[in-house]
Write a protein that binds this DNA or RNA. Structure first.
Lengths: 137, 137
DNA sequence: ATGGTTTTGACAATCATTATCAATAAGAGA
DNA sequence: TCTCTTATTGATAATGATTGTCAAAACCAT
């Protein structure tokens, strides 16, 4: 039987309060920062449960971390994420929307969902121009 | 200066001989199995180089492993993946390419990398009916 | 062949994630 | 409300992929 714990509530709320995707580790840090003594393993479990129940989306970042997002079926949009400071900008993506649908249809695919997110260095972090990793163009 | 070593050749050939995606670990095992004493770290480096040069594709498996594949098309492209049977189709994505660059630039972002993958049900799996195998949410 | 430099490879280090397991607390029933 | 059963928690160990280290080996222009 599923039990309700404040921990699970906390994770769900923290995820709801988050714009865009966040890693389990980051979410755990955020919870700690706001005074919650929740354990890391519990955050992982809660996020896993949410994803399994379909209440959360998950994707893999280019670095291989698992990122989670509250599943807001209302209003679909994408994200531009700074890989240095984590700044996230919401972006409209009508073009991509249409493109994804068309491409899927062309290959006979149905029920197409797409993961479209752009990672980069935001203006600030670019200016600071520290030790860059120089990844894919 | 880049040097040519039999190790890099071996990795490139092993990747060419592989259908679909393969993990670095698996490729290393395969090489060992065919008598090559190549080191694991070297396989990782070679694959990384190939991916950086655009001669190989890489994506993250749902389990978080990095998977590689010999790149048939030159240049960067994306994938259309069946969430039921795993069938993967390479898709050109010039539009998305341009879009991603433009959006990043508009917001002052530099060094943009993007995650653009479309998941859906391929023609076959659509025909078979959706809720049969019920694997991926 | 020689020398300067890149590359290799065994192993340690790192990072995210999962398993372990005793202690805790949720919730049903008395 | 109180008790009891058992799902859940959390500190930590374990796991598994990937990256860093650095001396030794290999490559290639000369």
């Amino acid at each position: 039987m599923k039990r309700n714990t404040w921990q699970r509530e906390a994770v769900r709320e923290a995820l709801d309060d988050t714009e865009g995707f966040i890693s389990a580790q980051a979410l755990h840090s955020a919870l700690h920062a706001s005074g919650s003594p929740i354990g890391l393993a519990t955050v992982y479990r809660a996020l896993g449960d949410l994803a399994a129940k379909g209440d959360a989306d998950s994707l893999q970042s280019p670095e291989g971390e698992a990122l989670y997002r509250a599943c807001s079926t209302t209003g679909h949009h994408h994200h531009l994420i700074c890989r240095n400071c984590g700044l996230t900008v919401e972006i409209a993506a009508d073009e991509v929307e249409t493109w994804a649908k068309r491409v899927a249809a062309e290959h006979g695919f149905t029920g197409a969902a797409h993961v479209v997110d752009v990672f980069g260095l935001c203006a600030n972090c670019t200016k600071l121009g520290t030790s860059e990793t120089g990844r894919n163009p």
